[in-house]
Amino acid sequence: MTDEPLLRVSALSKFYGSRVGCENVTFGLWPGEVLAVVGESGSGKTTLLNCLSTRLLPSSGAASYRMRDGQFRELYRMSEAERRFLMRTDWGFVHQNPADGLRMTVSAGANVGERLMAVGDRHYGKIRATAVDWLSRVEIDEDRIDDEPRAFSGGMRQRLQIARNLVTGPRLVFMDEPTGGLDVSVQARLLDLLRGLVTDLGLAAVVVTHDLAVARLLSQRMMVMKDGRVVESGLTDRVLDDPRAPYTQLLVSSILQV
């Protein structure tokens, strides 16, 4: 890890009228680090994620991102064109519902290739070869490359969405409940895959989840949110094994034991 963080967030707040989305969130994210944001629904996790990924503009606060040239850029001062370019090259966003992140009416190969074509790749053979490679990395059979995601199972769609996001070699990926709505055996394989990819590619990631087991498996650090505020943050193992804030203690003790 380098000394400088990839993403610096300070005092980020988002209000919906008088309601709090998230308030006064400050943290840094280093390259190769996975940060889990946990909390119950309505705690502001997704609002925070949408602000970080510039899908929402915060009410106050700042976030800066270290570009590939090493310079920090203030995210909310960038032009929309720059932000959208960042979104489809250096960043990825994995939605909870794959239908939100995929084009359901074009083939799997075109879904993976879209980002390549968006950054100017104009060689069909090369785009297709890259798509085949990425499908195999997310364990989708090569002969499904011309099928539409509509014909895929939930787990396959989610893996396709991951491949689509990672094809341009991003450095930072945002994930919103990546295993939500999947059954446990499929979840386990997806987590295994994600863990492998994150380690192999040295990705930094912000993972929003309400599932503490997902946080434990994927992340090195975590933040616990309640009512829009961060109530506790620290190394994942420390937070889960020795929760200090009363809310975190409640959360950890609420895990169902099988």
Partner: peptide, 12 residues
Amino acid sequence: GLMHVKLYEDIA
């Protein structure tokens, strides 16, 4: 980029 997605689909 999306315009080329259409052409990609054609070739595929």
